[in-house]
Design a protein around this nucleic acid. Structure first.
Length: 225
DNA sequence: GCGACAG
DNA sequence: ATCTTGTCGC
């Protein structure tokens, strides 16, 4: 699977929804194995027409940064709940091209299969990259659940009728839980396990948290700094 | 018709 | 996401 064969980004919202329906069957929910390099991606928007994307790669054993890249690009697609990949995907992929190492899995700031059409940004990008991906959202989009206990590491499952599509995880006491769901080539438990392993001392997992940190600095320095 | 709605 | 100061809590 290569992203060049999937579709173009410059499409209407209606077409975007059709594309998601066409791609959902391609998602593979297989267990995650032999993970060493974990990447985290995040986006920021300095103004209405530009987006900044950062990717930070960590060695899961040492939790040290192996590589990080950051790029900026003009954005056209507006933010529409359910169509996040069409707004952030292009900038993310530009950053991805700058990466020298190949991560074993990528964590995104958004949903995986916990999406109306099972194609959150993590799932969509997973197909483009043909790599395992995980969606780690800071808030709810789709699925039913009960609030997990206010205890570090506790979690409940996210359901779509009787199907488990993700987990609601309390990574930090007193804070809102995270909505974790597999994107591609990963299953719910693998996504849950890796996410908890990356949440060392903050609510967000290190990969995504560090990428966000980078993106914010870059945004304040300016597009040319 | 009404409420929900990743970033 | 972004605009923004002080402020409550561990």
């Amino acid at each position: 699977m290569n992203y060049r064969n999937l579709h173009a980004w410059d499409v209407s919202a209606t077409r975007a929804v059709e594309i998601q329906k066409e791609l959902r069957s391609l998602i593979e929910l297989t267990p995650l194995t032999d993970v060493e390099l974990v990447a985290g991606a995040d986006l920021a928007f300095p103004d209405a027409k530009h987006g900044v994307a950062a990717i930070v790669v960590l060695n899961i054993s040492t939790m040290r940064v192996v590589e990080q890249v950051i790029v900026h690009e003009t954005v056209n697609f507006p933010y529409v709940p359910g169509l996040l990949a069409f707004r952030e995907g292009p900038v993310f992929l530009k950053a991805w091209q700058q990466l020298r190492v190949l991560p074993d899995v990528v964590m995104f700031d958004g949903q995986g299969i916990a999406h109306p059409r099972r194609l959150g940004i993590a799932s969509h990008m997973g197909l483009f990259l043909d790599l395992p991906t995980i969606g780690v959202a800071k808030s709810h989009l789709y699925g039913s659940f009960i609030e997990p206990p206010n205890v570090q590491g506790s979690y409940t499952f996210l359901y779509d009728n009787n199907e488990v599509i993700g987990a609601v995880v309390r990574t930090k006491v007193g804070n809102k839980p995270l909505f974790v769901s597999p994107g591609h080539k990963c299953d719910v438990l693998s996504a849950l396990k890796l996410t908890l392993r990356c949440c060392t001392k903050h609510r967000l997992p290190e990969p995504t948290r560090l990428a966000h940190e980078l993106t914010q600095k870059y945004k304040h320095v300016g597009l040319f700094g």
